[in-house]
């Protein structure tokens, strides 16, 4: 190898090293932006008026079209041998198979409420009313569901 050829080879090797060194990853920089969605106030209301059997449950489905506040109020309980102060199960969740798969559950008496409130994403939800072991006969009830 001539001196000239050797010199060219050396230059090329150095250039290659520099070129490859350009592949060295640089630390990624990220810009995080936090947006806080504002929960819309309830704009719609539906009344769920039905009867819950002894040891049984019933549910009602509704659709939330925007992120916002959902209020569920058990406003009245009546029936033969059913005191108006009886405690029933009240739940909020999503329809699943032949029932309502609740994610929020409380035991409550009727009142002006709301007994359940929270912010929910758009989707189909359900309210379930159930006997928690207090009923000796079917209870008629009224639930008001307010949602955005």
């Amino acid at each position: 190898m001539t001196l000239r050829a050797c010199f060219c080879s050396l230059v090329l090797t150095l250039l290659t090293a520099i070129g490859c060194s350009g592949d060295t990853p640089t630390s990624p920089t990220s810009t995080t932006s936090t947006t806080t969605a504002t929960a819309a106030s309830p704009a719609f209301s539906e009344d769920f008026i039905d009867s819950v059997p002894v040891t049984g449950s019933v549910f009602y489905s509704f659709t939330v079209t925007q992120y916002g506040t959902v209020n569920v109020s058990l406003t009245s309980v009546t029936g033969q041998y059913v005191p108006s102060t009886v405690t029933l199960g009240l739940g909020l969740g999503k329809p699943d198979a032949e029932s309502c798969l609740t994610t929020t559950n409380i035991s409550t008496q009727s009142g002006t409420g709301p007994q359940i409130t929270g912010a929910y994403e758009p989707g189909v939800y359900c309210v379930k009313v159930s006997d928690v072991g207090n009923l000796f006969s079917a209870a008629k009830f009224a639930v008001t569901i307010a949602y955005p």
């Binding site: 769920f48 019933v58 549910f59 489905s61 509704f62 329809p95 189909v124 359900c126």
Partner: peptide
């Protein structure tokens, strides 16, 4: 029988 597809609503 009537077979249908839709969205859960009410009862």
């Amino acid at each position: 029988l009537e077979l249908g597809l839709g969205i859960p609503a009410g009862t």
